[in-house]
Simulated assay, not measured.
Amino acid sequence: MSASMPDLTVPIGSVTLRNPVIPASGTFAASYGRVYDLGRLGGLVPKTLMPGYRPGHPPNRLTETGGGLLNAVGIPSDGVEAFLDETLPAYKGWGTPLIVSISADTAAGFAELVRTLEGQGVDAIELNLSCPNLEEGGRSFALDTAMTAEVVAACRDTALPLWAKLSPNAEDVAAIASAAVEAGADALIVANTLTGIAFRRDGRPALANVTGGLSGTPLKPVNLRCTYQVAQALPKVPVIGCGGIATLQDALDYMAAGASAVAVGSATFTRPLAMIHLIDAIATHCTTKGIAARDLTRRA
């Protein structure tokens, strides 16, 4: 590592990120390539893919609240064929790992998507476990150890790395994480949004779906706690922190909690170059300290 060019690469299992900053699923599009070189990111994460066409929730889908963002977008998707023909090609050729986020209503649906993505130039699969399991009454997979394990195990036949995205709404996030790893998850993304609600001045819900996922600055203390608990429980498993990350200090906090990398979401809505500025800040910090990016992570 030279004094002017610190080593920013970070291993997440068998996948080596260019640097420890990736987009949070659902907050990023290949169109950002018109603003900056997407090859500068640690990895690329398209919006979560669902098995078929899905319109998502009706408007209003977004509202600002308490310094953060509450959303009930509902994981809209154009389906597998459109993803393979139109979306996936736009993410290739940037020279950085491609992590495809998937979700489905059943464990079998997850597994079918994984099989479809094999041989498509994908470097890893993010299992977005926040979608309701329709076979179990609509409860989110990520809230239950058995359902989490069922999804991961159903997908484990693939040679592709599996990264399980957990939920801060779980009663015991470390137990959910352990179940995912025991079933075959290679890494953990901690975590998704926190369920919340907001009202308009007339007393009616601000979102058409009534409840939504809280992201941004207010989410950070919760997901930082989740990251710490998961990293303490599973010290040998790579963790990617997610939730309220916008600044160098935010990233360093997650790494102090045990994360090897961070996923940035809501910050890009107000500052499209947020991830690029964060990467530059990490590079400067590592140069000043004379360390590599992987040395920023503290694990038990």
Rank of each mutant, 00 (worst) to 15 (best):
C226Y: 07
A257K: 04
D172I: 06
P205A: 11
L194S: 12
E171S: 14
L214E: 05
A256C: 13
L252I: 09
D253W: 01
K236N: 15
A180V: 10
L219T: 08
I197M: 14
Y228T: 07
T158A: 07
M275N: 02
A274R: 01
K220C: 11
T227G: 10
T158R: 07
A164M: 03
D253E: 14
V190D: 01
A259D: 09
S266V: 08
T268S: 15
A187V: 07
N223K: 08
K165W: 06
F269P: 03
A246V: 11
A175Q: 06
G212R: 00
V239M: 03
S167A: 13
T217S: 14
E182R: 14
G184N: 10
N209G: 06
S178P: 06
Y254A: 08
V210T: 11
I176A: 05
D250C: 12
P272H: 08
A177F: 01
S266Y: 06
A257P: 02
G265V: 04
A185G: 03
T217G: 14
G196A: 15
A180G: 03
G244A: 11
Q249H: 14
N223L: 10
D172Q: 12
Q229V: 12
M275T: 03
T217D: 14
G265C: 09
A263C: 10
Q229G: 14
V237N: 10
T247L: 10
Q232G: 12
I176K: 05
K220I: 13
A233P: 06
G196N: 12
Y254K: 11
A267R: 02
R271T: 13
A208K: 13
L273C: 00
N223D: 14
V237H: 05
L188V: 13
G241V: 04
G258M: 03
P272A: 10
A187M: 05
Q249D: 14
A208Y: 05
S178E: 15
L219W: 09
A175S: 13
Y254E: 02
S215I: 08
L248P: 01
E182S: 15
M275Y: 05
I245R: 11
G184D: 02
V239Q: 01
D186K: 06
V237I: 13
G244S: 09
A164I: 05
A267S: 05
A174T: 00
M255P: 02
S178G: 14
S178L: 12
T158Y: 08
A179I: 00
A180M: 03
A208E: 09
P238V: 07
A180S: 04
A180T: 05
M275H: 06
K165T: 07
A233K: 10
V264F: 02
V210S: 07
A191I: 05
L273Q: 04
L234N: 04
S260K: 12
T158G: 13
K165Y: 00
I276K: 00
A208G: 08
V173N: 04
G216R: 04
G184W: 09
V222Y: 04
A257M: 09
V239R: 01
A159N: 15
F269R: 12
A261Q: 01
A164G: 04
L188I: 14
T195Q: 12
V222D: 08
H277K: 10
A198Q: 11
G265Y: 01
T247S: 15
G184L: 09
A267H: 04
I276G: 00
S167Y: 02
I240Q: 07
D250K: 06
T268A: 14
R225F: 14
L207G: 11
A177R: 04
G216W: 01
